[in-house]
Design a protein around this nucleic acid. Structure first.
Lengths: 212, 212
DNA sequence: CACCGATCCAAACATACGTACAATTAAAAC
DNA sequence: GTTTTAATTGTACGTATGTTTGGATCGGTG
């Protein structure tokens, strides 16, 4: 890819992670040390630049997610997949891919954006992911009725997003007791927490069915 | 309070919930059917207006949280409080207070704002809440080591915030199978999910301590 | 009525923003 | 070496933003 195009992308995602999504083109081009007009030359508009920033990391993450889920289904060709492994396949790629910490913050911000924007990237990048994973989760937690499973998925995504955006605060609040760079531990915490949550809702579904 | 001041607050919070936090004063004053300059007359600046919008609902919510926690501590004067009840005292007021649905969406948006803004309202409104609840949670989950408890709290808040902002999507995704107005069910799901997550992390802490 | 403080209003201000365009330079093709 | 294409630059346009200002309007008080 063109060099200045890369410089723009890098500067854009860094600034957007630091200061929020609303960064002026002038701030971006100044930080990238390129001319203002370069943005509208290489990308058609600011909106397209935003799309490009999203896609650059979203695509590899989702490919990795599918790849991990595929591997899982090879390991368990018949039965349902272990709940923890499904959740890990969904959560780990966001934290593990080579991109730096600021990309994770940026990603967390995306999930909290105005509806219109998020709907766009949802339709473009997330629909197949959600379909595959909710199918896998349905087989892994057969006792969970559909609405409750959607709630559980919603809670899991929320925990992930909030962690992406605000985990830095935990380091401050704990006076350094929280080891932030230990992403393995973070993922493990997230997976255990969410899996237990899924099972708790499944448990209640069963009880309700028994009492009905 | 002055009538136009109220109209401005109402319009501001409604528009900010619908379209995101970044709404122009002109949009707000038009919707409120007041003059543009009224904002800078009744509030000093747009920033102060934002603070007022936050405070109007944040304060009652936090009072109710403390009130529920106080009641709990009266019921269990000696021993630790039940985990579910603590979480419910923290989570329920956000969903239950009389304000309409758009206020919940707005609240979800707040928690995802640029660092500087969120730090301000954190210091002003949230510090005592976090202190009291984390103390209560510490007694309720004695086996949980401090960093893991912070993670669990972080996940819980994330699940709550994401639910506030995006629960409307669940209704769409499920073709109506998710009963959104049933806030009691939502809170119950959140409480069960989070409590199970806390216990799962506590469980692992114990195992690690045993193996050490 | 005269006065006054509070509220409201229309208009203007300065600034910041995304975009468009013509001119210039660099690179590539022939 | 000339022509063509791609990339960069400086600049200007139109619009939207938050804020300010000076005057109008209204209700109550002496």
């Amino acid at each position: 890819m063109n060099e200045t195009k890369l410089k723009i992308l890098d500067a854009a995602e860094r600034l957007m992670a630091q200061q929020g999504i609303d960064v002026s083109l002038r701030a971006i081009t100044t930080a990238a040390d390129v001319n203002l007009a370069a943005v509208n030359y290489h990308f058609h508009s600011k909106d397209s630049l935003l799309d490009a920033v999203v896609a650059r990391h979203m695509c590899p993450i989702n490919e990795r997610r599918i790849q991990m889920l595929d591997a899982l289904e090879r390991d368990y060709p018949n039965g349902p997949l272990p709940l923890e492994d499904i959740l890990r396949a969904f959560l780990a790629p966001v934290f593990e891919l080579e991109h730096g910490e600021h990309v994770r913050v940026l990603f967390g911000r995306f999930y909290s954006m105005p509806d219109e924007f998020m709907e766009r990237i949802y339709k473009r990048h997330l629909t197949p992911i959600v379909n595959r994973f909710s199918a896998a989760l349905a087989r892994a937690t057969p006792g969970l009725q559909i609405p409750d499973r959607l709630w559980a998925m919603n809670f899991t995504v929320g925990a992930m997003v909030h962690t992406l955006t605000w985990s830095r605060l935990l380091g401050v609040m704990s006076n350094g007791a929280v080891d932030l760079p230990d992403t393995g531990r973070v993922i493990d915490n997230l997976v255990r927490f969410s899996a237990a949550g899924f099972r708790a809702l499944e448990q209640r579904s069963k009880e309700e069915r028994r009492n009905a």
